Amino acid sequence: MYTGIVQATAPITGLSRTGAHTTFEIDFPPGLTEELKIGGSVAVEGVCLSATSISGSKVTFDAMLATLERTNLGALQEGGMVNLERSAKMTDENGGHVVAGHVSCAAEVVEMVTEEPRAHISFRVPPEWAKYIFVRGFLAVNGCSLTVAEQEGDVFTIYLIPETLRQTTFPRYQPGDRVNIEVDHQTMVTVDVMERTLERLLPRYLAGAAE
């Protein structure tokens, strides 16, 4: 479990691709590897990955083909920067929202503005995921817990405070790039249950109204 509060950005210092998976080596900032063990979970750009080796500040992770296809990890290059968050302890304060690190979809950046006072990111999600996102609802974008400010069809806009811009990889993004989206799980369950309920009850209602 994560909180959606990005703890640091870090560079990719090594990258190796094979047919089945990609191995990333990331140089963690001081202190962020404390008590991290092999197999420990870290959110990398919002994707829950397990540490496969630890050597000083250098930590490696493997991403399988299914993960690379669903997320933006397949587009990362050596020298690029990623958002990092260590998994949360049960006693930790949650200043964001409950984030699983299971990315729902990758969204296309439509507009990126980093200048105040209207710094924001707008992105387009696949149509099948738009129903789970709504104004004033929250979601994780590249692992960062954020609140939706505006919606127009399948395009959503989130405003960014200076601290978010300072602490994340967002300033590096440009229109056409992809970001990882994790919708709130409880919202997704609620929408799905309501849809199934309406599909079951609506025919009965229409049949009764026709009598």
Rank of each mutant, 00 (worst) to 15 (best):
F138A: 13
R70E: 08
E195S: 06
Q186D: 07
R136N: 14
T164V: 08
S50E: 09
C48L: 04
I26F: 03
G143D: 06
T169A: 07
V82R: 00
V135D: 07
N180G: 04
F170A: 02
L73H: 05
Y2V: 00
G40R: 04
N83A: 02
E115R: 14
T168N: 06
T91F: 11
G14I: 10
A51E: 03
D92H: 06
L146S: 07
A209G: 01
S145G: 12
V189T: 07
T147A: 10
R204C: 00
I12H: 09
V148A: 12
R17D: 13
L165R: 06
R17H: 15
E182V: 04
R70T: 09
A209H: 06
A63V: 04
I181F: 05
T52P: 00
G143M: 04
W129T: 10
P203V: 01
P117M: 12
G4T: 05
P29Q: 07
V189I: 15
K89M: 05
D177S: 09
H97A: 09
T71Y: 09
T13C: 15
H102G: 06
A119R: 03
L49S: 04
E69L: 11
R17E: 13
G74I: 13
E182F: 08
T9N: 03
E69R: 14
L76D: 03
D92E: 11
N83F: 06
P11Q: 09
L139W: 04
P30H: 12
Y159K: 02
K131P: 00
P171E: 11
L76F: 12
A130F: 11
T147H: 11
E93Y: 12
K58C: 09
E108D: 14
H185M: 11
Q151D: 03
P162Y: 09
A130K: 08
L84V: 03
A10R: 01
T23M: 09
A66N: 14
T91H: 15
K131F: 03
L165H: 05
I133E: 02
E69D: 11
L201M: 12
I181H: 03
Q151H: 06
I161N: 05
S57I: 00
L36P: 01
T3H: 02
M64G: 00
Y132V: 01
A51C: 08
A100T: 14
G96P: 05
A106N: 07
L202V: 05
G95R: 15
V183Y: 03
L65G: 00
C105V: 13
T67D: 11
N72M: 14
T190P: 00
M1D: 07
P117Y: 13
G39T: 10
E211A: 06
T190Y: 10
A66F: 09
N83D: 04
E108P: 02
I26S: 04
S122G: 01
